[in-house]
Amino acid sequence: MTDTAAGFTLDTVLAALAALEDPKMRAVNERHGDDHGVNLSRLRALAKRIKIDPALARELWATGETAPRLLSLLICRPRDFDADELDRMLREPSAPKVNDWFVNYLAKKSPLAEELRLRWFDDPDPTVAAAAWSLTTERVVKQRDGLDLEALLDQIERELQSAPPPLQWAMNETLAQIGIHEPALRERAIDIGERLQVLADYPTPPGCTSPFAPIWITEIVRRREG
């Protein structure tokens, strides 16, 4: 058990998480496949108290439990993990929220992000392939140079409609971001979305942008150019 500079140990942190457990919150989360009952705002507040603590982060991840793993991802240091370790972590069974935070808070912030993107692309595990597409979306938005966007659209056109849900969602996001950020390919991206109709019927709350790529692209471009 590691003693942290702020006085937190694995036992004290697990006790703090247990105190945050709310049966009503668990019921809500379980409808989305997340087996924990901790309010995420309170989880973030606990992470701020702990601050960055790589050793404790590893101990929390090793519990295999959802709430500790979420906290682990908030207090870890991405550069401390090598590619094989990150690959192993991604392949471990985890709740959807853990997977989402792993990709966004750890993989995307790792100095090995591009190595991981190439390693995971076209992996037979849809969760792993989805992570690669999320990293691809990050490059589309921030650093498109060197990406073959036409080839990405070709693959999306072939595979999006039949992809399993996590992978489909990630590929659809890449499609939308190519349309948003690359004017020369915008018409093609919208056309692919219109023909495939992926997420066309997705229920979208008032005031939110639909994940249906043609609507998503058109709305964001309108806002930017308006």
Rank of each mutant, 00 (worst) to 15 (best):
A62H: 08
D87I: 05
H36N: 11
P78V: 11
R88S: 09
V38Y: 02
E85I: 04
L90P: 05
L73H: 03
H36Y: 10
A45M: 09
N39F: 14
L73R: 00
L71P: 01
R88E: 15
V38N: 04
R42W: 10
A45E: 13
R49H: 03
T63E: 06
P54G: 03
S72G: 14
A83W: 07
L73P: 00
E85F: 05
K48F: 12
L70F: 01
D82C: 09
L74Y: 10
D82T: 14
T66I: 02
L73T: 01
I50L: 06
L90V: 13
D80Q: 09
E92R: 15
L60T: 00
R42F: 13
C76R: 01
A45P: 04
D84S: 14
H36P: 03
L70A: 01
A47G: 04
A83I: 09
L71W: 03
F81Y: 14
R44H: 11
I75W: 06
I52L: 04
L71H: 04
L70H: 00
H36R: 12
G64S: 12
R91W: 10
T63M: 08
P54S: 13
H36Q: 14
A83G: 02
R58S: 09
P93L: 09
L86K: 01
D53F: 07
L43F: 02
A83D: 11
R91K: 14
K48Y: 06
R44Y: 04
R91M: 14
R49P: 03
P68G: 14
N39K: 12
L86C: 12
D84P: 08
L56F: 05
L40R: 11
S72C: 07
L56P: 00
A67S: 07
